[in-house]
């Protein structure tokens, strides 16, 4: 990632973007407005901050390619938007350069109980591809499109991580 974007960070919460600027002299602004803020990092997963005279303890947990920030009993899903990446994405179209649209990934970590299709088999949209068991619940991972199973990447009884590729549908 280019160093020039380091001091300008865009975060997105509930589809609203916030542009934060961190100056060398310690000044912090959000969407062009300077705020009174002091930040004490406790660990990589939590920090204390004082913002406009109020104190907060924010706890961060990685999730869904972004993170969950827990503050005062409320949890916010927050993504960091990389301006250069976003520009690139708008040129080449919706994230297609970064993720193959036809691949099926594990929505959660778990155990592949059963593969419901074979390689080369035709599948309909919504048809079950793999049954994934996590925390005693069985979840059917379904095909997002009608097509042919090009490749299966997992075996029965295999443990998969979240986001791991399960199958490719063409």
């Amino acid at each position: 990632m280019p160093n020039t974007s380091l001091k300008r960070i865009i975060t997105q919460v509930n589809d609203i973007q916030y542009e934060w600027k961190f100056s060398d002299d310690g000044t912090i602004s959000v969407n062009g407005k300077v705020v009174v803020a002091k930040i004490d990092k406790v660990s990589d997963a939590d920090l204390f901050l004082s913002l406009e005279g109020k104190l907060y303890h924010v706890i961060l947990t990685e999730a869904n390619g972004g993170c969950i920030a827990l503050v005062n009993g409320e949890a916010y899903h927050i993504k960091v938007i990389d301006p250069t990446l976003e520009k690139l994405q708008s040129i080449v179209g919706k994230a297609s350069a970064f993720r193959h649209p036809d691949e099926i990934r594990a929505p959660m970590p778990g155990l592949v109980v059963k593969r419901e299709v074979k390689e080369g088999e035709s599948v309909k949209i919504g048809q079950g591809i793999v049954i994934l068991e996590a925390m005693k619940m069985e979840n059917e991972v379904k095909s997002p499109k009608t097509g042919v199973v090009q490749k299966l990447f997992v075996e029965d009884r295999q443990v998969v991580e979240k986001g791991e590729i399960l199958a490719l549908i063409l």
Partner: peptide, 14 residues
Amino acid sequence: NILAASLAVAFMAK
């Protein structure tokens, strides 16, 4: 809360 959470994440990303 949103601003505090957002600032915390931005600071970590920085």
